[in-house]
Simulated scan of single mutants.
Amino acid sequence: MVRDLVLGFIPLEWVHELDFSSLEKLNSSYISDDLRERSDDIVWRVKFRGRWLYLYILLEFQSTIDRFMAVRLLTYVGLLYQDLIKSKQLPSAGRPPPVLPVVMYTGDAKWTAALHLNDLTEAVPAELNQFQPQLQYCLIDQKRYDAAELEKMENLTAALIRAELAEEPQALIEVLNHLAMWLDRSSQTELRRALKEYFGRILTKYDLPGVDVDALADLTEMQTMLSERVKEWGRPYREALEAGRKLGIEQGREEGAELAEAKILKRQLTKRFGLLDEETIAQIDKASSAQLELWLDQVLEAESLQDLLGES
């Protein structure tokens, strides 16, 4: 999983030189209880050109964006170095190893927090800048990936992101079918069990009558059961989805009509009374469709903007 995450989603050429046969997970006990409550941190180390490289993977499942994520990671990396020094686990050269901080974000809103610590701090003279802490992290903002492109990738992380992006159960079943065949090896028992728990969490966002996820033994049982049940609960789900889509279209038509009326009114008022100020534009933009129609009917008879817009 870590290999696929790094190779598939970190756009740096040198990651292909990593020796993934040396990959091992480390104990992250050095993280304080206060910090642990806000993250699910995973630290791995892997050999890079004969020396250890540490991967700090922060799985960010919050719906809100942490503006100071770079500061959090600076703290985490500092604690990692402190722990390596205290436990005498520094490389043979006695220097702290390089760290690649990775944030995997699953929220709906686009990630807007600064990726570089320098972008958070106050501007300082060049002479002072050299003394400031430096840190930049790699962001994986999964909602920004295209589902079609992810489908082409033979990559476990890509499959999980496809599952998160699935808008209907059928798309989720396709991912499960793929994984069930892909992981059909006894050596993947632990991973299959973990994925079963993961998909069980994803399924909670669907209303699937008759589906008892907790009763399923593994990923294969989940895939088989969902495939058998898809015809039973797929129709009402699609009907509800279609009803919602139609409602959205009707609402969009109404909003589009209001925008067109407001645009025409602004154009006519500008021809009669000159450029409109911001207050007038805001008043028009906030008006209802009925109010806009009334103003349009009266615009040719009004002697001034106040005469027209002052009446509701």
Rank of each mutant, 00 (worst) to 15 (best):
V2L: 15
L7D: 07
G8Q: 10
I10M: 11
P11M: 15
E13A: 15
W14R: 09
W14N: 07
S22P: 01
L23D: 07
N27R: 15
S28E: 14
S28D: 12
Y30P: 01
D33T: 05
L35H: 12
E37A: 14
R38D: 05
R38Y: 15
S39N: 10
I42L: 14
V43E: 08
R45N: 13
R45D: 14
V46R: 00
V46K: 00
F48H: 11
R49Q: 12
R49H: 14
R51T: 06
L55C: 10
I57S: 06
L59S: 07
F61I: 04
F61M: 05
S63R: 15
S63H: 15
A70H: 14
L73P: 07
Q82Y: 08
D83I: 02
L84K: 04
I85N: 00
A93I: 07
R95C: 12
P101L: 15
M104R: 13
T106M: 11
A109H: 15
W111H: 10
A113K: 13
N118W: 08
N118H: 12
T121A: 12
E122S: 14
F131W: 08
P133F: 06
L135R: 06
L135D: 07
Q136C: 10
C138Q: 05
L150M: 07
M153L: 11
M153T: 03
M153G: 02
E154K: 10
N155K: 09
L156K: 04
T157P: 00
I161G: 02
I161Q: 03
E164L: 09
E164F: 11
L165E: 02
L165I: 04
A166C: 04
A166S: 05
A166L: 06
E167Y: 03
P169F: 02
P169T: 01
L172N: 02
L172I: 02
W182A: 12
Q188L: 13
E190Q: 07
E190G: 10
E190D: 04
R192M: 12
R193K: 10
A194H: 07
K196A: 05
E197W: 12
Y198R: 08
F199R: 00
G200Q: 05
R201G: 08
R201D: 09
L208N: 00
L208G: 01
G210R: 00
A215L: 04
L226W: 09
V230D: 07
G234R: 07
P236Y: 02
E239P: 08
A243P: 01
A243E: 06
R245L: 05
I249C: 03
I249Y: 08
E250D: 13
E254H: 09
G256Q: 06
E261H: 04
A262M: 10
I264H: 02
R267A: 14
Q268V: 15
K271V: 13
F273Q: 04
L275Y: 04
L276N: 03
D277T: 06
E278R: 11
T280R: 01
I284H: 01
D285G: 11
A287F: 04
A287T: 09
A290W: 03
L294I: 12
L294F: 05
W295G: 14
L296P: 11
S304T: 13
S304H: 09
L305S: 02
Q306I: 07
L309Q: 01
L309H: 01
S312W: 14
